[in-house]
Nucleic acid binder design. Structure first.
Lengths: 156, 156
DNA sequence: AATGAAACGCCACAAAC
DNA sequence: GTTTGTGGCGTTTCATT
């Protein structure tokens, strides 16, 4: 959780991060061998990365369709007023809504972009009408179905 | 990788998935105790979920800012022609571009939505000009800076 | 700061209930 | 599906360089 200043990010750390980003369950031994350092050193580096906040967590990637959420969509949301209170209250509520995978707070014509997964198009309509259109702070929404998505390699 | 038909997703599986989605490195023993089944059973269920494709992978969540990528943006991309060949070639190229975290293929006015992370605004401009505007299939782009984002709880 | 060895804990496989 | 037990591996700490 702590986000210390950056004592520089050395190449071996980047290599470790690349491996863990691809497979968070890769054994420490295997990582150490792959990047060319001792297992204990590798473990210490990973722990340091975790505590510095470089690694924010480890998450299983669950297929929404397997959970019965076969439809995914991107919903642009524009708010009425842009007072800080309204923004922050909306920001706090949004990730709690059922089906919201990720919520982006944007600088631009639209204020938010919601990535949602729902069982079917009826549920999508209900989501927009019940939680967005009905919300007093919401001025406008625009929904686009998602055909598919791809992860990049984080090859920065 | 195999995506078998679904032999039904029982509540205990959903509980396991919820825990692993939050912390992919949670020990099997702890998961088993939390959901109320034996460790060996839990392990077998997790393995089955993995092989059925319900769990697609385990990924470390790395802070892009720590990698020197302090700027994130969403870029809407509209293509000229919508032939299948063009779409698929663009789809194949996009996730390879440096800085692309995720690429969404949309149904709507815009064809793609790119979530990118770059070191600074200069790099963002270069990304758009070099890889998108210069691409023959690209008709229009629109870039919005990202102030922040939140993960939902996957509480489907 | 990185290494190597040694204790600990967890995991995986195999039975039997 | 659960429980127990055993072997093997990964992890963790410590002493050392």
């Amino acid at each position: 959780m702590p986000k210390n200043p950056q004592p520089e990010l050395v190449p071996v750390d980047r290599a470790i991060l690349r491996l863990l980003a691809e497979n968070a369950r890769m054994p420490n031994n295997a990582i150490a061998e792959e990047v060319g350092i001792a297992p204990s050193t590798c473990l210490a580096r990973i722990r340091a990365l975790r505590e510095r906040g470089v690694i924010r967590g480890y998450h299983a990637d669950v297929d929404p369709a397997a959970l019965g959420l076969g439809i995914q969509a991107m919903i642009s949301v524009r708010l009425h007023a842009h007072t800080k209170e309204r923004i922050s209250s909306f920001t706090a509520e949004i990730p709690l809504l059922p089906g919201v995978l990720t919520a982006f707070h944007l600088a631009g014509a639209d204020d938010y972009l919601l990535h949602v997964a729902v069982p079917d198009t009826d549920a999508l309509r209900d989501f927009v009408l019940d939680h967005l259109t009905a919300h007093p702070a919401v001025a406008h929404t625009e929904t686009s179905l998602i055909f598919g998505h791809m992860r990049g390699h984080m090859t920065a």
